[in-house]
Structures are given as C-alpha cells and as structure tokens.
Design a protein around this nucleic acid. Structure first.
Lengths: 112, 112
DNA sequence: GTTATATTCAACCTTATGGTTGATTATTTC
DNA sequence: GAAATAATCAACCATAAGGTTGAATATAAC
C-alpha cells in the first residue's frame, strides 16, 4: 500500500504529453535522440531535456554508441506506478462504497 | 488508448506526497481544510494551495458550509488515470515481449 | 585534415511549484 | 458589537519546468 520509491519522478515524467509520446515510440523499439525528436515541433534541445527527465525517472535507458545515443524503454517504474494506482483505486473505492452504504443505512433506520 | 483528457493535471496532482496523503485522508470521509492540514508540518496556507491543485485536477470537491469548507474525494479522474496506465502497461509490455521474441528468433536462426 | 553529424552544455527567458508571512473576508460565538 | 475562528488573498522567495539560441564536444565521413 505504501507508494513505491521514486513514484514522484515517475508521475511527473508521465504528466507531459511529449514525454508520453516518446515512451510510446520507444515501446516500439530503441531509437536515437534525433529520431525521437523528429515528430515534434520543438527544438532538439527541448527533446534532449525531456529524455533526461525520463532517465531520471528510470523510464528510459541510454546506450552510447559512437556519436549516437540509443534510448530504450524500461517498463519497471511504469509498472510499479500502475500497480500502486490500481491498489489505491481498489482501497479507496471500497472505503467510499462503505461510507455510502453507512449513510444509506443511517437514512433507512432514521438516525440523524 | 488515447490518454484521458486532464491526465496531465491528474498525474501532477498525484506526484506529491502531501497531496497523496490528503487524498488518502479524504478516502476515509469528508474533512475541513484545518482538519486536513493538522497532520502536516507546513502552514495552513500551503495545504490550502495543495487542495486548490487537487480541485484543479477535479480529484477533490468543495462544499462551503458557513465559514467551513468541506472537502470530499472524487475518484473519477483517478480511476481514469489508473485505467489508462493499465491499458498502456499491457500494450507496451506486449510490444516489448514481441520485440524480445523477434530478437531471440533472429538469434536462433542465425540471422545477423 | 576538414567537414558534417549527433548530442550535450551553458545561458537565458517565462511560468509554475511549494513554501513563507501578513492582511483580508466571512462567519460564529460570547 | 467585540472577539475568536475558518479560510482565502496578496506579496514574496527559491527552485524547477519547458522552452529558446548559440557554443562546445565527440565521432564519422569524405
């Protein structure tokens, strides 16, 4: 139930459409920085910074090959965040349902 | 598969331990601002700001009752974000597994 | 060896976060 | 009505995000 270590970085990394698109691309296989930047209207430098944030969250790994940097997707932190959210969703929904039932019961039995 | 509208705000709101703790508290039932602020070492004003961000993400609803503001948890955006992550997790993991299999197959058949 | 390519570094700008303190507003309570 | 309480507003500060342009670095290609 405790939030996974590093979930702040993971969620911040995912909270940006450019970075989500980069991950989407990387889920189809490795890519170099220039390839990743191609679809976007922003500068290469901006993409480079996004990649650095994804690396900080360990969602992306870098392999330097000569002058090229090859990026790949690491799903571990993503899975951990997804699992935490799923668990939380169940726990919180259960509590809200219980509260709901309690209120309805009090209403039925005429308690104030 | 498309990311739900407002997911940026949802994930940003969730990417802070104080705000996660506030939601945790609210999952146990409504509370006023002062009550929510009590467990934290930060100022009431800081908590007020966190609540505003949770409201912006529509994770929290406010009901003004005289001088008291009663906050409640709205699970909808949370559920939407959790569902998106779950779907993405499956899609991306499937792709990575397929890539893996492909690489192994190429290796087995001796292709370069 | 000179030129082109891939990428980062450095500096800068604007806006947002997360926090503070002090003042203001609105409501209770006495 | 005066005093206490609940909460926001306003101004400020430091740091980070997201973007830019221009310079530096390292490798590849000719």
């Amino acid at each position: 139930m405790a939030a996974p270590r590093g979930i702040d970085d993971t969620l911040i990394a995912l909270a940006d459409p450019t970075r989500r698109a980069i991950l989407q691309r990387l889920s189809r296989g490795e890519a170099r920085v220039t390839e990743l930047a191609a679809p976007f209207a922003i500068s290469l430098n901006a993409v480079s910074k996004h990649i650095r944030m994804l690396e900080r969250a360990q969602l992306v790994r870098r392999r330097v090959q000569g002058r090229e940097h090859v990026l790949s997707f690491n799903p571990k932190p993503f899975d951990a965040a997804a699992a935490w959210m799923q668990a939380q969703r169940h726990a919180w929904t259960a509590r809200l349902d219980a509260l709901d039932a309690l209120l309805k019961e009090e209403d039925r039995t005429g308690k104030s």
